[in-house]
Computed example of a mutant assay.
Amino acid sequence: MARVLVVDDATTVRMYYRDVLESAGFTVEEAVNGFEGLEKAIAQSFDLLVVDVNMPKMDGYAFLRQGRALPELRAVPALMISTESAPQDRVRAYAAGANLYLVKPVQPQTLAEAARVMAGAAS
């Protein structure tokens, strides 16, 4: 079973992602900001990172930049999801290390399918 780390400061968003991803067959762990996410990502093994942009302590961009600098996280696929929808937000996300950028709100089917493809999980 593929493991996903959801990094988002909003409890309701984490609950929504957990519900969608667990229904799609994933095991889900959560972190409330980039700092906690980085600690969990280093300590455990994940098949996918689902990351918000705007968070306290460490935002999603810093989380991805720091994660990509570490050998153990360099190859873990990262899906960044944000309310930020300007073209430069996508550019920043990809420059930080995101593999895919989606704008909130993300439909359940879109999230589940993107997670399956990115984590290499069978549909």
Rank of each mutant, 00 (worst) to 15 (best):
residue 1 M to V: 10
residue 1 M to Y: 02
residue 3 R to C: 07
residue 6 V to S: 03
residue 10 A to E: 15
residue 11 T to W: 04
residue 16 Y to A: 03
residue 20 V to K: 03
residue 20 V to M: 07
residue 20 V to I: 12
residue 20 V to W: 03
residue 21 L to Q: 02
residue 23 S to R: 11
residue 26 F to N: 10
residue 28 V to T: 09
residue 31 A to E: 10
residue 35 F to V: 07
residue 36 E to L: 12
residue 37 G to E: 12
residue 39 E to I: 10
residue 39 E to H: 07
residue 40 K to P: 12
residue 40 K to A: 15
residue 41 A to E: 05
residue 43 A to Y: 04
residue 44 Q to Y: 13
residue 46 F to H: 08
residue 47 D to P: 14
residue 49 L to H: 12
residue 50 V to K: 02
residue 52 D to P: 14
residue 53 V to M: 14
residue 53 V to I: 12
residue 54 N to H: 09
residue 54 N to P: 00
residue 55 M to D: 08
residue 59 D to I: 02
residue 61 Y to S: 10
residue 62 A to R: 10
residue 63 F to R: 06
residue 67 G to R: 04
residue 70 L to W: 05
residue 71 P to N: 00
residue 72 E to L: 15
residue 72 E to C: 15
residue 73 L to Q: 06
residue 77 P to E: 11
residue 79 L to K: 00
residue 79 L to A: 01
residue 81 I to W: 00
residue 82 S to D: 00
residue 83 T to K: 09
residue 83 T to I: 11
residue 84 E to P: 01
residue 86 A to S: 15
residue 87 P to H: 10
residue 90 R to D: 00
residue 91 V to W: 08
residue 91 V to L: 14
residue 92 R to K: 15
residue 92 R to V: 02
residue 93 A to K: 02
residue 93 A to I: 02
residue 97 G to A: 15
residue 99 N to Y: 08
residue 103 V to L: 14
residue 103 V to A: 11
residue 105 P to L: 09
residue 105 P to A: 09
residue 108 P to F: 09
residue 109 Q to F: 02
residue 109 Q to P: 00
residue 110 T to P: 00
residue 110 T to L: 11
residue 110 T to W: 00
residue 111 L to C: 07
residue 112 A to C: 10
residue 114 A to C: 13
residue 117 V to R: 06
residue 120 G to W: 14
residue 120 G to A: 12
residue 121 A to F: 08
residue 122 A to W: 11
residue 123 S to I: 01
